[in-house]
């Protein structure tokens, strides 16, 4: 009868965990297995699809003061080309003379193509409940159009090379009251925070696993989150000040991580706890 009823996802987690919290190391290994099984079960029916659908509509709608659709936006593979575009981002855009990741490029197009002011376009970069973010919906759809495409970020342009190098330095940059850097958690194999596995983003395998599974629907938040959000929230937990959306550093770090993931098939929007 169960399968005829929507099983509450958080409830599902509680049910899986409940009997396992009983005893010791055995329980711990099993808990990790159960978390993996829980994720696999969720993959079918990933609510990210709801964001993808809204994003596709947003992409095609005539919007903004200029009443133009984002189909006039060039994500790097030509005006309006979405298929495979994310697997080559970040990249250098001559029209802006800048390296841009997806969200930065979208912001650029909202301003130049659709005529939005920066303030209007960035009013809500991360959604919360009924206050939804256009960036999250657009990113969900655009990235879904790169699912299965092999990551191929190029450092050929000197500005991309420079972004990569800055991103690498910033990855190891320790600061704040806790002395944390990205590398505190993400520079060694087989480490965990509590029971959460941490990808080693300095190695190919870890970078591929980490980077190709964002954006993701976070079950614990009931929201779809983009890579900009991932960086933003990592820095919050690092006790750094607030990372600016579409900032140079966010693009540099994204370049560093995306390039390290080259060669892997992109596999998002994913679903995470």
């Amino acid at each position: 009868m169960n399968r005829y009823l929507g099983i509450g996802k958080n409830l599902g987690l509680a049910l899986l965990f409940g009997p396992l919290l009983a005893a010791g190391a055995w329980a711990q290994n099993n808990t990790l297995d159960e978390i993996a099984r829980y994720r696999a079960q969720l993959q079918d029916g990933n609510p990210a699809e709801l964001w993808e659908a809204r994003g596709e509509d947003l992409w095609k709608q005539k919007r903004g003061p200029k009443q133009v659709s984002l189909e006039q936006c060039d994500l790097g593979k030509g005006r309006g080309v979405v298929k495979g575009a994310y697997a080559e981002l970040p990249r250098y855009f001559a029209d802006a003379d800048r390296v841009m990741d997806l969200e930065t490029r979208l912001l650029h197009c909202m301003m130049t193509v659709q005529g939005f002011s920066k303030a209007d376009a960035t009013r809500r970069v991360f959604g919360s409940g009924s206050n939804r973010s256009d960036f999250e919906a657009l990113a969900a759809w655009i990235t879904s159009e790169s699912r299965g495409v092999v990551m191929k970020v190029s450092l050929n342009h000197p500005k991309v090379q420079r972004a990569y190098e800055l991103g690498e330095k910033a990855f190891y940059f320790r600061g704040g009251p806790h002395d944390f850097s990205c590398s505190t958690c993400h520079a060694e194999d087989n480490k965990r925070i509590r029971l959460q596995d941490l990808p080693n983003l300095t190695q190919k395998k870890g970078a591929q696993l980490g980077y190709t599974t964002w954006p993701a629907y976070r079950v614990s938040q009931g929201e779809l989150r983009t890579f900009q959000w991932r960086l933003y929230d990592c820095f919050r937990q690092q006790r750094f000040p607030e990372l600016e959306f579409a900032s140079e550093l966010s693009i540099a770090l994204t370049t560093f991580l995306a390039y390290n993931a080259n060669g892997a098939a992109f596999n998002a929007p994913a679903i995470k706890r």
């Binding site: 800055l166 910033a170 940059f173 320790r174 750094f240 000040p241």
Partner: peptide, 20 residues
């Protein structure tokens, strides 16, 4: 400079947290 320009002070976390 780029790192500092990429953050804004928020709540108890000021930009001085980036001074190593």
């Amino acid at each position: 400079n780029i790192i500092k320009a990429s953050f804004r002070a928020q709540g108890q976390a000021g930009l001085d947290r980036l001074d190593q």
